[in-house]
Every structure is written in structure tokens, then in C-alpha cells.
Nucleic acid binder design. Structure first.
Length: 269
DNA sequence: CTTGTCACCTGAGCGC
DNA sequence: TGCGCTCAGGTGACAA
């Protein structure tokens, strides 16, 4: 399900309901997510949430004791609901708050994670992450320099979390189309000028997607249960075999690094 | 070091 | 209806 925009939309949806709210219970129905949920997550109980933050596609519920770290994997969804709402299939975790609301994690494929980070510590998963795409730390200079000597396709390069975080399959496809770059082109052979455009398009695409409430394909919903509307803006993702919106030629679909890749042979070089 | 492949898991959609 | 197959928005772990 979620790429950075969907996670950020979830964060914004959750924050007003849980900020400064004391956690009264953490209910775990199935601890077998990508990793077993550690017992330490119960340390959240009794303290108010001091912040809801995001790093890459990880969400952090912070408290004085430490932070609960949530990752939605491919199929995870978070909802803010009343405690009385009946539990459904794949509702693995509830975080209950003093105000009677519950943050409920539903994740059919269980590629998501629910982990714990001691106050003042940095979880090992977060240590090696590259810069946030929507900050000034992510710029064309960095992209260009990191790409030298890279022989693999540029699409894999921009999806590499060491290079920049939060660019998943949808937005990699979309950004490369908007920048007019063939996703198969070796990352090390792209000019600085073209990386400048790509950097702009990545930022622009992610920012627009957040504004639209994320991309609803099958099952993404915002934390209020409403869908995101960015799917209407998709120019190439999921449109293999259809006409390019720019030149009308047929969009090609190939696999790059096991992932569906759609591009226009005419517009992307 | 880099690069590529596999694995984790469930559900939807398709052809037969 | 049912079976078997493929595919799906992520990413750590491992092999080469």
C-alpha cells in the first residue's frame, strides 16, 4: 500500500487525535508481523503521546519512555476509531487512548512492523537511511555524486533507501516519466542537469500526492477511512499498454528489479 | 564494496 | 464453483 505520501497522510490524520493523549492499553492480537512485536511496546502505556513523527516510511508515536515505531509494509492500514468498533480480520494491534479512541493497525500481508525505540536512542533500522526527499538535504548535487560508478538502472537507484528515502514503485515511475528519463538507463551515466530535473520532479510528485491525500489503488484509505485521490493523477503507473498522455504512443511495461515499470519510449530517454 | 535475487504473507483476478 | 497461477504500493538478508 503505502509510499511516503500515504504514510505522511496517515501521520497527519492520526496526529490530532492522539497528541497529548495518554495511552491506556496496547492490545496485540497477532504479534507475528515482519518481526515479532517486542514486549517493550507496552512501555507506551501510562504516558501521553508527545509527538507523531515520520522518518522515511516509518511512523513514530513518541512518549517520554520511548517511541512506538510503525511500518505499514505493503498492505498495512491505520485507522482512528471508537474503541467499540468491532475487530475485523487482520486487525493485529490496537493502541487505546484516554479519550476512548483507538489507533488500529490492519495488515493482511503482515509485512508491516511494530517496534520499540528507547528514548534518546535510534533504532538500527533507521540508522542507515538517506535524506528525506522533501527536505533541502535531498538535492541534485547529492543525487549526482552518489550515482557516479553506479551501473544499475536509475529507477533502482532512486528507490534505494541509502540514496533517498520514501520513493517507492509508483512515485519512481511517475517521477522518471515527468523528468523524461528512461528508467532503464544506468544511474552513473545521467548528467547533473538531468538529475536536477529528476530531483525537482520527485519532490513535486511526492508533495502533490500528499496534498491529494495519497494514492488509493486497492485498499489505501486515510485514517478517517476516506480514499486518497492521487490515483487520478497517475500518468504511467498501472497504464502499461495505454496511450502516453504526452505523445499518444503506447506505454511500455517491463520488469526492473522484479517491479513493474511503465514508461514511454518516445518521451523518456 | 556493489548488484541481483529471494523471502516474508494474504488476497484478488484471471484462464481453464 | 474451484483450482492453480500471477501479481501487488516494501525492504532486510543473503549470495555472487
Amino acid at each position: 500500500m503505502p509510499e511516503l505520501p500515504e504514510v505522511e497522510v496517515s501521520r497527519m490524520g492520526i496526529e490530532p487525535h492522539v497528541l497529548d493523549q495518554k495511552v491506556v492499553a496496547v492490545v496485540i492480537r497477532n504479534k507475528q508481523l515482519r518481526w515479532p512485536i517486542p514486549d517493550e511496546v507496552h512501555l507506551l502505556v501510562g504516558s501521553p503521546i508527545t509527538a507523531v513523527t515520520r522518518r522515511a516510511k516509518y511512523l513514530m508515536l513518541e512518549s517520554e519512555k520511548g517511541s512506538a515505531i510503525l511500518h505499514l509494509g505493503m498492505s498495512g492500514k491505520l485507522r482512528i476509531i471508537d474503541k467499540a468498533v468491532p475487530v475485523e480480520k487482520h486487525d493485529h494491534v490496537d493502541i487505546e487512548f484516554e479519550n476512548g479512541l483507538v489507533l488500529r493497525l490492519n495488515d493482511p500481508r503482515r509485512f508491516g512492523a511494530f517496534l520499540w525505540q528507547e528514548a534518546g536512542q535510534q533504532h538500527s533500522l533507521l540508522l542507515k537511511l538517506g535524506p528525506e526527499p522533501l527536505t533541502d538535504e535531498f538535492d541534485d548535487k547529492r543525487l549526482f555524486e552518489k550515482s557516479r560508478n553506479k551501473t544499475g538502472p536509475v529507477k533502482n537507484f532512486i528507490m534505494d533507501n541509502h540514496v533517498v528515502v520514501g520513493v517507492g514503485n509508483i512515485y519512481a515511475n511517475e517521477s522518471l516519466f515527468k523528468a523524461g528519463i528512461d528508467p532503464r538507463r544506468p544511474a552513473g551515466k545521467i548528467s547533473k542537469k538531468r538529475y536536477q530535473l529528476l530531483t525537482e520532479k520527485i519532490k513535486e510528485t511526492l508533495a502533490l500526492a500528499i496534498k491529494q491525500g495519497g494514492t488509493t489503488l486497492k485498499d489505501f484509505t486515510q485514517s478517517d477511512g476516506n480514499p486518497g485521490y492521487f490515483a487520478q493523477e497517475l500518468l504511467v503507473y498501472g497504464r502499461g499498454g495505454k496511450a502516453c498522455t504526452n505523445c499518444e504512443s503506447t506505454l511500455l511495461e517491463v520488469k526492473i528489479g522484479q517491479r513493474a515499470t511503465v514508461f514511454c519510449k518516445g518521451c523518456q530517454r
